[in-house]
Structures are given as C-alpha cells and as structure tokens.
Write a protein that binds this DNA or RNA. Structure first.
Lengths: 382, 382
DNA sequence: CTGCCGCGTGATACCGGTATCAGGCCGCAT
DNA sequence: ATGCGGCCTGATACCGGTATCACGCGGCAG
C-alpha cells in the first residue's frame, strides 16, 4: 500500500509522459547514460525541471546494485576524536561522490553487530569501522559483511583476527615517546590511565602483555609503548600504577586518587584518552595537588581546551582528519577496483610539548610532604 | 549489470526454493505479515537460517514506501553539543525501531541543501534538522522535503519562516540569567562573544535587535537575553562589546583582545559557545590577565573540561540528550499518525555556578596598571 | 452427493529505476 | 528499386521485496 503517491514526487514515467517521450528516453537523459538527441534531451530536462523530479536513490540502487554510499561505524560520536575522523571521511567521500551513513555503537559490541546489519541491509558499497571487537570470535559480523562482497576498512583500531586494510596511528611509538619525556624529566613512578578494557587487572607484566597482545587494539598498543619506555629506562613494572577495566571518568578519579595515596605515590600520569585526562585532573584537585609540580601530566588527543588550561597541557595530537581521509581513500580505491592491500597504513602522531611536565619534586625519604598521603580536607571550593 | 550476484546474499526466492515453498509464503514468514502454517513457517525459517538470509531494506522500502529511517542534519558533528543531541536522537529512534542517517553541513547552507536532497533521494521517513537557514528565501530545500510528504522537525534552531515543530532551549532566558549573574557581581562592561553571523557589525542597539529578530536563531535569542539583562540593569548598550560575524576561534582572540584593550575595558565576558570560551581564554592569557579577578567569565555548553579548569568555569548546561530525545519523539509521533502541533517545545537549561565569576577589581581612577585601563562604565553614557 | 464456505498457499502485479534489445526510419550502395 | 546498415527510440525484463487475489482443497450443510 504505497500510502499516498503523488506526494512523494514525480517518477521518471511521469516525466516521460510530460515530455511526450518514452520512459527509457527520459531515463537515459536523467540517468546520464546512453544516447538521446539534443532535442528530446531538452524536452525531458524541461519536464523534469517543471515537475521537480528527483531520482529515487532506492530504486536506482536496486537496479544497479550500487548505492554510492559508505557506512561508517564508530565507537562514540561524542568523542571529538571520532568527530574529527568523521569529518575526514565525509570530506573525501563527498569529493568522490559518495554519501556517508554514520552509526555510533557507544563501545557496545552488540550495537556494533546491529549497526553492521543495518549497513548490510541498506546495501552500502563499503564500510569503515572502528571496531570494539577484540577476539577471533567477535568478528563474525564483519566477516559476514565481507562475505557478502562489502569491502571493510578498519580505522583507529586494527583487528588482528581480520586480514584487512587498517588505517591507524603509531600508538605504541606515540605512547613511548610521551612516557620517555616523563622519564627524561626524572619520573620513575608513572601512572597509566587507562588501559585495555579487560575484566580484571593483570597482576604481572607478563599477564598484562598477554592481554595487550590478544589484539592490536589501540589501548593495548599504547600500553606496550608505556612498557617499552619503562623497559628502556630499567624502571620496574608496578601493576598498582596501571588502570584497566571499564572506562568511565568516575573510575579514573578513584583509581588516580588511589595511585596518589600510595606510600610511594605516582609523580606523573600518562592518559590515553581525553576522559582519562579530565578524570586525572579531578583526582589531582581532590587531593589538593597541582600540576606540573606535584604531578606531571601527558595525555592523548589534543584539544582547544588542553591549550588554554593553566598551565597548558602537553598532549599527543592525532592526525584525525588525515586518518579519516586516508581510510575513505583506501576504501574508495577498493570500490574503484583496486586490489585490497590488506596492510596497516600507519600515520604519525605528534607530541605537543607545553607546560604540564616538570621534574618530580624531590622528596626526602621517610618524610613525604603533607598533602600527599592522607587527603587534607578540601580547602578549595567544589 | 548486477555485478556478481551470489555474493550479495540470498534473496527471498532462494530461501523459498530451499524451503520448497512459494515465494509469497517465504515472504510472509520472513516479513512477519499474513498467515503461514507453523510447519511451513519452520521450514522457511530453517532455510533462511541456513542460507544466512537478510532482507534487502532497499527493496522493502521500495515496495512499502517506508524506510524506517530518520535523517538528521546538524551543523557540525565535531561540536560536542550536536554529538550529545545525536545520541539523544539515536537512542529514542532505536527504541522505536528506526535507523538514523546523520549528515553534517559544517554551517554551510549549500551543504545543507545537498544533505536534504540526499535524504529525500534516500526516501527517509522524516527529517530532524538544526538549520543554518535564516531567511525566508533560504528554506526552499526544507519546504521541498515537506511538499514531498516528509515531516521535518527543527532542533536547536527554530526557523521563523517555517511553521514547524521545533525543539529548543530557552536561549534568551538562559543568556539573561547568565548576564544577570555578571551584573549582580557588579559588572557593567560585559562583552558578548559571539553573536549572529551577520555580515557587518550593527552600530546601534536598534540595528542589532533588527538583525536578531530576522529570525529565532539561537545566537539571536542569546543576544536578546544579553540585551534584556543590560536593560533591566539600565546598562547602556555598547556596540564595541559585541562580537558578530564569522565564527572562528581566531577571530574571538582578536575581538576579545580588542575589548580588553579598550580604554574602558571589558570586565566580564559572556560566551555563547565553547569555541568562544576557549578563544576568550586565549585572549586573556595573551593580555596577561586571569579570571575571575581580572575578567569574569560565563559560557554556554558545559563540558568535562570546564569543570576541571582552575578555577572551574561557571557554565550554562544544555539538556542535550533530552533535546535530541524530544525532537525524535515529536517526529516519531508525527510518523505514527499524530497531527503535527507546529509549536515550539522549549526545554530548560541550567546555569552551573562554579568559580569564574568575581566582582570587578576596584581600580583607583587615574592610576590603572598598564595594559588594562578600566574606567567606570558610566563615563561612557551619553 | 453436491454446493458452498473458508482457509492456506502460490501466482502475480506492483514500487521506480536500469539495461538490453528489437524495430522504425533514413541514407547510401548496388 | 531494393537491400542493408546504422542510429535513435521505446518496449520490456529485470532488481527483491510487498500485497492482492485466485485457486485448490477439505469440511460441513442441504
């Protein structure tokens, strides 16, 4: 029951009738294929103009099997990182005449599966995904898309279980570089916020690495970079300084507070995400501590805010736009007939040094300054 | 030329063949309509399962004329405000079984027109739009959608030229409340950053109001609220304290620097958007000034960053999720057959008082510190 | 035993495009 | 004059669903 036709705009048949030509002629003119004499072409165009004709993309896709639409699945549109990525993707897609459908999973694998199905059902030509999948048994939905002939390109998070093109940054190197800066400033008690979303905190370095190598996901790589820098400086790994598990700002505050209350407390914190940084900052304030003197800080994902903080924050800037643009370009090339390279395209991030790193405050052993062991009652307004 | 069928997944006919039933029977089973005997139903289901059948949403939409998809057009996905909005929209849409296609226009009317056409072509059932359109002659694309029977709901920015449902916040009240707080603290030289994107700065209050009333767009309402508060406090309007025109953080820095360098400089700044706030903060630092003592600050759109700034920023928090949820609910109700109310649904924002407002620094006339030359505000009155 | 009713099923005409192909018309060569 | 080839054009069969409708079959009443 096609509700109330006549509303939904004219069809090609109506245009043809108006122009007094056959349906096929109107279709050739409007579809821009085949040959039509200048005279008829003009008549069709005039009729289309008059009627306000717009081609039905659904019908066209049905017939051609091609939708000129890319599907993008991201973990969280609310995250500025993904927002930037998206802009890169849509800019280059539009350039090449493709539309983009965006779906956000909010880090929920179930929603990622649902999103993939939506894209399959809507017959997108290709998919770009920042997947929440970690393991071999969590990629069935992506494999289903591929099996149906829909090319998939990974972005931000590579999934080892899938042999696909992936566009990522040098997470491990970036993290290592940041932690090296901390080490060079003299820090040895460096907190890692936050890590792989595993169920329980790994007790040993070995366990941690095992967890990290389950996959190439972003957090895992950043953790490896952290470990690399520690190793190079011969700083022993301390599981108490690593936060893993569910990623909520709330938990960061708790965990960093804990690290700050340790007898041998943390003197620097490395944050792998924006929310980790804001959470750490909250914890600092709660403890009546400030940066960079009490605690040095470096975080991932530069933003306007980080630059206007007082003092301004040293941050790692990811090439978000390029990341998105590259992912779209790779996918579009495949759609254009190129053979998938099935390789990792790694882009470089950049450490922007500002003023949130200073040498650790020298502490005479045995008599740590007040304000770091028990929390003093809030002297500051909430 | 349907490239290589067999790739794209089984069709309903193939499922029917596999199950040994007629096409219609398979369709009824899989489509969940009409009657099918339990026995055949089971056979069809088994066949579908075996073949990995997924319905082609395109074909279904073609046939039914309904896509169960909402189109959303926002100005900028990179803006956390819109990201939050989107989440509200997709949460309630998904609840009601609708998918969402998001298009970002980056404040470009041309792209908004293109986006609208994409949505029309893809035959979405309804559209939610935060339009960049201001005037009567800029809404043709939205009217085209409506004429084609696609319901449109406005969000964040109401467009006066269109008699549609709109979900907005009490922008004027929110701005007035914020400026009142500034006034109550003793400020009389209050900067407004930033205003309507008009071509040239209005010189008089009258001109400004005229510009603002061209439409109900967000900035205009916020400007009115600012003016309201000034009027109530009998503070004369000074065009030098209002920033209008293109909205770039770069320009904010320049304009606020200018306001800070005025003989009778600004002692407080009210920002209508996040970028306005970060820009103002930059300008402050450049001038060697700090808040809240040198300059009081209030801004729109609370964020995690605003709360961790030192001192924390007093901000207006918009109910972003509710805004999106409400817009989706209104649209979905219309799609469900409800008569459009064509009214303004106004949600309340909340001023979160933190520590970026203090009374203006009293300065003995005649001996003001270099770089800041405050005069009593009254000295400028005509 | 015949007729009618009703239920379950399958055949089929859509939806609005694309793409193939047949056929009409014209010109030119024989 | 006839035949043939090329050029345009329009008829039509798809794409993969939905929805209508006709038909076959069984049961029950007359």
């Amino acid at each position: 029951m096609p509700a109330d036709r006549g509303q939904a705009g004219p069809t090609i048949s109506e245009v043809a009738a108006e122009a007094g030509v056959g349906r096929a002629t109107a279709a050739r003119t409007l579809g821009g294929y085949g040959y039509v004499s200048p005279e008829l072409r003009a008549r069709v165009l005039a009729a289309a103009e008059k009627l306000g004709y717009r081609a039905n993309a659904l019908a066209r896709s049905m017939s051609t099997g091609v939708s000129h639409t890319l599907g993008v699945i991201v973990a969280d549109i609310g995250n500025p990182f993904f927002a930037g990525l998206l802009r890169g993707i849509s800019d280059t897609s539009r350039e090449r005449g493709f539309d983009v459908i965006v779906l956000s999973t909010y880090e929920n694998l179930g929603q990622e599966v649902a999103a993939t199905n939506v894209l399959i059902d809507k017959r997108v030509d290709g998919v770009i995904v920042a997947s929440a999948a970690l393991d071999r048994d969590q990629v069935a939905h992506l494999r289903a898309a591929i099996d149906r002939g829909i090319p998939v390109v990974l972005v931000d998070r590579a999934v080892a279980a899938l042999d696909l093109d992936a566009v990522v940054i040098d997470n491990r190197e970036a993290a290592r570089e940041a932690v090296e800066v901390l080490v060079a400033a003299g820090h040895r008690r460096i907190g890692f916020v936050w890590g792989p979303p595993v169920a329980q905190a790994p007790a040993t370095r070995r366990e941690l690495l095992a967890a990290a190598s389950r996959n190439l996901w972003t957090d895992g790589e950043r953790l490896r970079g952290y470990l690399d820098a520690l190793d190079d400086a011969h700083i022993p790994f301390d599981p108490d300084l690593v936060m893993v598990g569910p990623k909520t700002e709330q938990r960061v505050v708790g965990e960093v507070s804990r690290m700050l209350a340790l007898p041998d407390r943390v003197t620097a914190v490395f944050c792998t995400e924006t929310d980790g940084m804001t959470g750490s900052l909250r914890a600092l304030r709660k403890a009546g501590l400030s940066y960079p003197d009490d605690v040095a800080l470096i975080g991932f994902d530069d933003s306007a805010w980080a630059a206007v903080m007082e003092p301004p924050l040293t941050m790692i800037a990811q090439p978000v736009h390029e990341l998105g643009a590259k992912a779209a370009a790779v996918l579009l090339d495949i759609l254009g007939g190129a053979e998938p390279a099935r390789e990792m395209h790694t882009l470089r991030s950049r450490l922007i040094q500002r003023s949130s790193v200073a040498p650790p405050r020298p502490v005479p052993p045995g008599q740590e300054p007040p304000g770091q062991v028990p929390f003093p009652a809030e002297s500051r307004d909430p």
